[in-house]
Write a protein that binds this DNA or RNA. Sequence first.
DNA 1: TGAAATAGCATTGTATACATTATTGCATTC
DNA 2: GAATGCAATAATGTATACAATGCTATTTCA
Lengths: 212, 212
Amino acid sequence: MKQSPVQLVYDDIRNKIIRRQMFPGNRIIEEDLAQELGTSRTSIRSALQQLRQDGFVEIIPNRGSFVVQPTLEDIIALYDVRLTLESGAIKAAVENATDDTIRYLEHNLRQQLELDKNFSISAYSALNRDFHWQIAKASLNPYYERFLAEVYNKVEVYMLFYDKSIDNSYSYSSHKEMLTAICERDLNRAEAAVIADNEKALADIRYSFASV
Amino acid sequence: MKQSPVQLVYDDIRNKIIRRQMFPGNRIIEEDLAQELGTSRTSIRSALQQLRQDGFVEIIPNRGSFVVQPTLEDIIALYDVRLTLESGAIKAAVENATDDTIRYLEHNLRQQLELDKNFSISAYSALNRDFHWQIAKASLNPYYERFLAEVYNKVEVYMLFYDKSIDNSYSYSSHKEMLTAICERDLNRAEAAVIADNEKALADIRYSFASV
DNA sequence: TGAAATAGCATTGTATACATTATTGCATTC
DNA sequence: GAATGCAATAATGTATACAATGCTATTTCA
C-alpha cells in the first residue's frame, strides 16, 4: 500500500522539522520541494494546508509558507489553552476510561521508569507525548483530540527549537497521579494533577527562556 | 478591492449553508460549483479545505465533500469542549478585558434588551454569537479564538438544521452576569456564569431533540 | 433467480501550464 | 549620496488537462 503524494510530502516536512533539518522561520519553497520529492506543486500546497491545520507551518497569502516559530508569548498562550483543554479532557477520561486505556497508561509509566537506567531524551519525550495523547483519546471526544494535537505539535516545535530538553524534566510523579485519579474516578484529584503538570512544565520553560 | 476566487467560493458555500440553501449531509460536487461560480476546481478545493478547518464541511478522501451533519452525540461532545474553552477564555478575559471590550459588551446587551420589543430570531442569534465571540477575543489568546470559532460554527449548523430556534432561548441573564463578573474582575463568578449559560443551552437542545 | 464480476461513467486526485503578485537590484533624479 | 521609480526575476495563485478511484448498472454464470 503506497501512500499518496500529499501524505508523502506531509510526512517529509514533518520529519524534517522534528529531526531539526528544518528550523522555525524557515521558508518552504513549493517548487524546490516538488523537485526534490518528485511531485507536483499541487500536492505540496495541499500538504502545506494540512500542516498548517496541525500547527507545523504558517501560510501567509502571496508571501509563502514558513515553519512555525512560536514566541515565548505564543507558548504562554498555548500553555494556557493546553491546561484548559487537558482539564476538560481528563474529566471526560475519568468518566470514560476503559480497562484497556488504564493498562496502556500503566505500561507507559513503567517504561518511563525503565528509562531511568539509560536515559534518552527523545525516548522520554515520545513517552511523555504518548501519555498525554492517550488521555486525550480516552476522553472519547474527537474535539479534545484534535485541538490538543495542534497544541502539542506547536509546543513540540518550540521545544526542538530551544533544545533545552525542557518538558523532559520529570513529570513522572504528576503523570502517576493522573493515572491514579483516573483509576479511582476522582475528578478533583485528576484536575489537580493536570494543573501541577502544566505549572511545572511552564515554569521550566520560563526558566529555560530566562537562561538563554 | 475584489476578493480572490477561493474567498468567493468560501463565502458562497458558507452563505448557502447558513441561509439553508444547502443542508447537512449534502454533497458538494467540485465541478458543478466551479461551473456555477465561474472558477476552477483548484479554487473550490482550496476553499473546501478552509471550510473543513472552520467546521462547515467534512472531506472524505476519494469520496467527496459534504456539509457537516452533527449528530446529537457530536453536539454533546461539542458543548463539553465549548464549556471547557469558554471557561478558560473568560478567565483570560477577566484579566485582560479593556474598557473598549466592556463598552462593546454593554452595547451588545442593550441591543439584546431592545429586541424584546420586536423580536427577530436571526437578529438575536447574531447578537448572541457576537457576544460570545467578543469574549473569546478579549482573552487575547488566538487559540481560544480559533478553537471556539470551529465549535460555534459546527453548533450553528446543527441549530439551523433542527431549526428549533434553540440557543435563542433567553440567555440574557447569564450574559449580563458574565459582563458583571468581567467588570468586577471576579474569576469565580465569571466561570459560574459560563457554566450556567452552557447548561441552559445544552438542556434546551436535549429538550428540543426529545420533542422531535 | 440471485450473486458476483465487469464495464462504463461520474468524481476526485495529481500534474502541468498560465496569470498575478511581491521582491530585489539598478538606474535615475533631486 | 539618498530616495524613489521601474524593470527583471522569483514565487505564489489559478486554470486546465490528465490519471486514478469509486460507484452503478448490466451482464454472466451457478
